[in-house]
Amino acid sequence: MPDTTASPSPVPAARVRRAASGDEEALGRLDRAVWSPLHSVQPRPEEPYEPFFTPRTGPRDHLVAERAGRLVGYVRVGRPTALASNAHVRQINGLAVAEEARGTGVGRALLRAAVAEARRQGARRLTLRVLGHNAPARRLYASEGFAVEGVQPEEFHLDGAYVDDVLMGRRL
């Protein structure tokens, strides 16, 4: 007798695009919804909320993932310093994925888009910082070619524990 049970429908792929100024409210909501001491060194955001975009990091610095017309993630890519001597380096300064989109490839798609964007900008290296206790993020970064390049032991005190700051990078 044939199996008549329906298989789960696949999760539609997320579309990654450059952020627009109109995304600010949705990005702010997403950022507040995913806040956790697992990945944030800042206190939990409280009202009144700061704008998501700042003069230093605007839409031009963000790539967003959409699924079914809804923002489900973002990655922020910028220069680590304003120095001409490291203009060849880009840095991931934030990556967030909505809880319901985790494990569906959104983070990986955003990370790959960040690599492509850094290359498009002429960068030779892409770096990031991740908290030592954030094992899921560290596994994702390693699987995409990022290697640990340094550790600042007990750099942060979060939720009553000292946490390492792990520096990772990769050549482009």
Rank of each mutant, 00 (worst) to 15 (best):
residue 112 R to F: 06
residue 167 L to C: 09
residue 112 R to T: 06
residue 7 S to G: 13
residue 106 V to Q: 00
residue 18 R to A: 10
residue 146 F to A: 02
residue 53 F to R: 00
residue 61 D to H: 15
residue 13 A to F: 03
residue 88 H to Y: 11
residue 85 S to N: 09
residue 9 S to N: 11
residue 67 R to Y: 04
residue 68 A to K: 13
residue 106 V to M: 02
residue 5 T to I: 13
residue 72 V to Q: 12
residue 68 A to D: 15
residue 82 A to M: 10
residue 51 P to L: 09
residue 53 F to W: 00
residue 65 A to N: 06
residue 161 A to M: 06
residue 11 V to A: 08
residue 132 G to D: 08
residue 135 A to I: 07
residue 96 A to D: 07
residue 63 L to T: 01
residue 32 R to N: 13
residue 170 R to G: 03
residue 19 A to D: 06
residue 152 Q to W: 12
residue 89 V to I: 15
residue 93 N to H: 14
residue 79 R to D: 11
residue 154 E to T: 10
residue 78 G to C: 08
residue 32 R to H: 11
residue 77 V to E: 02
residue 27 L to F: 00
residue 168 M to R: 10
residue 142 A to R: 15
residue 82 A to H: 11
residue 61 D to N: 15
residue 113 A to P: 06
residue 65 A to I: 02
residue 38 L to N: 08
residue 87 A to C: 09
residue 79 R to Q: 14
residue 166 V to E: 01
residue 98 A to I: 00
residue 77 V to L: 15
residue 171 R to V: 07
residue 46 E to R: 10
residue 92 I to G: 03
residue 102 R to H: 02
residue 67 R to H: 04
residue 160 G to W: 07
residue 5 T to C: 12
residue 74 Y to W: 14
residue 18 R to D: 13
residue 31 D to T: 08
residue 108 R to L: 05
residue 163 V to K: 05
residue 25 E to I: 00
residue 52 F to H: 05
residue 28 G to R: 00
residue 45 P to L: 13
residue 111 L to R: 02
residue 153 P to M: 13
residue 72 V to S: 09
residue 125 R to S: 13
residue 121 Q to G: 11
residue 23 D to V: 00
residue 21 S to M: 06
residue 149 E to T: 05
residue 163 V to C: 07
residue 51 P to G: 12
residue 38 L to R: 11
residue 133 H to R: 09
residue 169 G to N: 04
residue 46 E to H: 07
residue 147 A to K: 09
residue 165 D to K: 10
residue 21 S to C: 02
residue 73 G to Y: 04
residue 153 P to W: 12
residue 153 P to T: 11
residue 35 W to S: 05
residue 92 I to W: 08
residue 91 Q to F: 09
residue 116 A to D: 15
residue 68 A to R: 14
residue 58 G to A: 08
residue 10 P to N: 07
residue 71 L to S: 03
residue 171 R to G: 12
residue 169 G to L: 01
residue 63 L to Y: 03
residue 160 G to R: 03
residue 15 R to Q: 07
residue 45 P to M: 11
residue 122 G to V: 05
residue 89 V to G: 04
residue 24 E to Q: 02
residue 139 R to D: 14
residue 102 R to T: 03
residue 112 R to G: 05
